[in-house]
């Protein structure tokens, strides 16, 4: 192995040879990571994010979202295909009650992802709103469900279509 490495070094420019193998590996690892993050089928979390619109627009979007639905969830993925266990649990609980709910996929919209965290001062996703009010994340939804509080909170909410 040592002999192989030694012979490989002969083909490297003097500067890299001086840096030694550790430097080489670091450079190699970095390049690989960059390739991965821009890969077409890489997870949304690791794709380069573009932040453009001013914060006010996101806030307006959020206020419109939560005003136009009795129940609204900011989640990873969509209710038919949640992309995170916590979002999945929140949807599963809401589905139990047969209420109609709106949703926004924060993985598809980095501005909303950051905007909703600012709006509620809550650092994690999912985030659930009932009748325009922030109720919490999946742990709180689950707790409300277990205590029977969710049934009460969802009273009078528009039922799901099917």
């Amino acid at each position: 192995m040592q002999r192989l490495l030694t012979s490989a070094r002969q083909f490297l420019p003097a500067a890299q040879r001086a840096g030694g193998l550790a430097d080489l590996q670091r450079v190699g690892g970095y390049t690989a990571a960059r390739l991965f993050s821009t890969d077409a089928d890489s997870h949304d979390d690791f794709k380069p994010q573009v932040k453009a619109a001013p914060a006010g627009d996101v806030e307006a979007t959020i206020e419109k979202d939560i005003a136009s639905h009795d129940v609204f969830i900011y989640m990873k993925g969509v209710p038919q295909a949640p992309m995170c266990g916590f979002s999945n649990m929140a949807c599963a609980i809401l589905n139990l009650y047969g209420v109609e709910y709106g949703s926004r996929n924060v993985l598809a919209d980095p501005e909303v992802r950051e905007g909703i965290k600012r709006y509620t001062a809550w650092p994690t996703i999912p985030q659930v709103f009932i009748k325009g009010e922030f109720v919490g994340g999946s742990d709180i939804l689950h707790e409300m469900h277990q205590k029977g509080e969710l049934k009460k909170a969802l009273e009078g909410c528009k039922p799901a279509d099917d």
């Binding site: 916590f86 809550w122 650092p123 994690t124 922030f134 742990d139 707790e143």
Partner: peptide, 27 residues
């Protein structure tokens, strides 16, 4: 309330969340 309780925890752990803690299931 639960929301207030979770916020108390999030506030105490802000530095860890910023530094890469991705998910905190809280009881």
């Amino acid at each position: 309330s639960s929301v207030t309780r979770h916020r108390m925890v999030y506030q105490l752990l802000q530095a860890e969340i910023d530094a890469g803690v991705h998910a905190l299931a809280l009881k």
